[in-house]
Simulated assay, not measured.
Amino acid sequence: MANRARIGVLISGRGSNMAAMIYAAKASDCPFEIVVVIANDPEAGGLKLAAAEGAPVVALDHRGMKRAEFDAYLHAELTAARCDYVVLAGYMRLLSDGFVDKWAGRMVNIHPSLLPKYKGLDTHQRAIDSGDRVSGCSVHVVTAELDAGEVLGQTEVAILPDDTADTLADRILIAEHQLYSRTLANFVTRNVRPDALLDQVRDLALALPEVEEKTSHGSPGFFVTGGKFFAYFSYNHHHDGVTGLLVKASGVEEQAMLIEQNPDLYYRPAYLGPSGWIGIRLDAGENDWSDISDWLKKSWLKSAPKRLTKLMSVAAQF
């Protein structure tokens, strides 16, 4: 698969989740590749496995080093490997805030509980002691606050009557191996996958006053109750391979100016173009969702009844 996301994996021990990712990445349709495996313990068993499977490995001994100093070396190795994302797979060393900031939104971890329950350690015993019927695992974005980032995926695992912390941990580990690679694949394609892009557009559009969604001309469309359509989500609609958002510009003059200034982002929609609509490409990779939100608001204002636009104008003054 072309243009696969480059993943750096951090481990401290046997690296069983790392191994699951290495094997997942061997599939031709996997959207990521493992470009480096780094351990903070030179004796970590996962290093031998990764090397045997052809993954580049780096051993950095953290002993005797201050956290920020060690994390600077860690960051340098990940940068040298041109990593797009960092995956924590049994990495047992706390990360400095500075390191987390550098990889904000691009670092994920797997935790053996159904977050937000049981952050931190001893998760299996805590779930058993609480009388829970299910436990499980969660993949989440790493933030400075422990186990508090956005949850990207979860798998429930039943707690059996005779479970101990060890027997429950063994089954949850199987679930982790299944969940982590699948969730990572979804995460690294969220900026190009049509269903994920539509979800983000939908959230922004439906947050505007009195907006409803309806399929129109074969595409998901958004309109103001009692008003007109102000946005369409277009996916390969004219067999052009383009995923984009169609909104109202001020007219064909603005449309032409935008396309001339940035032809990689803006385009003239086939049917709505003559009416002054503008197409915004969403499939180029990183999207400016703040700008997209502004476009949706401007297009909404052009379509909403006066009673709503007056209320919006009043609200904007406060």
Rank of each mutant, 00 (worst) to 15 (best):
L173N: 11
G244F: 05
L49R: 09
D29T: 12
L10V: 06
I174S: 13
L208R: 00
Q125N: 11
P263A: 12
W295M: 05
R4M: 03
R67V: 02
R93C: 05
N191Y: 06
A39S: 15
N40P: 06
V201R: 03
K26E: 00
D162P: 01
Q125Y: 03
K214V: 04
E156D: 05
Y180P: 04
P263R: 08
V314K: 06
I259G: 10
T167V: 08
P263D: 12
S275T: 14
P112N: 04
S293G: 12
F222C: 03
R190V: 06
Y271M: 14
E77P: 00
W289V: 01
T243K: 04
R82Y: 08
N287E: 12
V247H: 00
G227Q: 03
D240N: 15
L311T: 05
D132G: 02
R126Q: 15
H111M: 08
L95S: 11
Q178L: 08
L49K: 08
I278K: 00
A25Q: 01
F32L: 00
L308W: 01
D199R: 01
G90I: 00
M65V: 07
G136S: 04
E254I: 04
E150L: 15
K119P: 11
F318A: 13
T183I: 14
W103F: 14
G64W: 07
H239M: 08
G149V: 10
A158R: 14
Y271S: 12
D264V: 12
D291W: 07
P56D: 12
L206K: 01
F223Y: 15
F233V: 00
W289A: 02
P194A: 05
A148M: 10
F222R: 02
D170T: 07
D129C: 08
